[in-house]
Amino acid sequence: MVPTIYYVLLSAALFTMGVLGVLIRRNAMVVFMSVELMLNAANLALVAFARQRLTVEGQVIVFFVITVAAAEVAVGLAVLVAIFRSKGTADVDEVSTLKG
């Protein structure tokens, strides 16, 4: 059995890549994908800890996270489509109407 710490370190690396994607990329689609990557990294850590402690609760929480992520993606992509219709771009730097 692989030690839990390996899974946690992999999860940390994936989470960092997601953070970098949100910070660096300007395409709103890729920013969104990076958010999904972060959610997945957190899920991986939860499942790893569930296996370590032999409690199914961790897996139940991951089930909820996946459900909420699905809802979040649906609403988020609808917002993106609405922004694209009014602004004509999916570049997050161009959507700066609220900037003072």
Partner: peptide
């Protein structure tokens, strides 16, 4: 990795919901 961690249910959910539904939605909108 979920399968390696003894969670077959999450393995199927991950494939159907994430790799299936969510990615189709992403590709469709892009």
């Amino acid at each position: 990795l979920f399968l390696l961690l003894q969670s077959p249910f999450l393995f199927t959910i991950q494939l159907t919901v994430y790799a299936g539904a969510i990615m189709v939605l992403f590709l469709f909108v892009v």
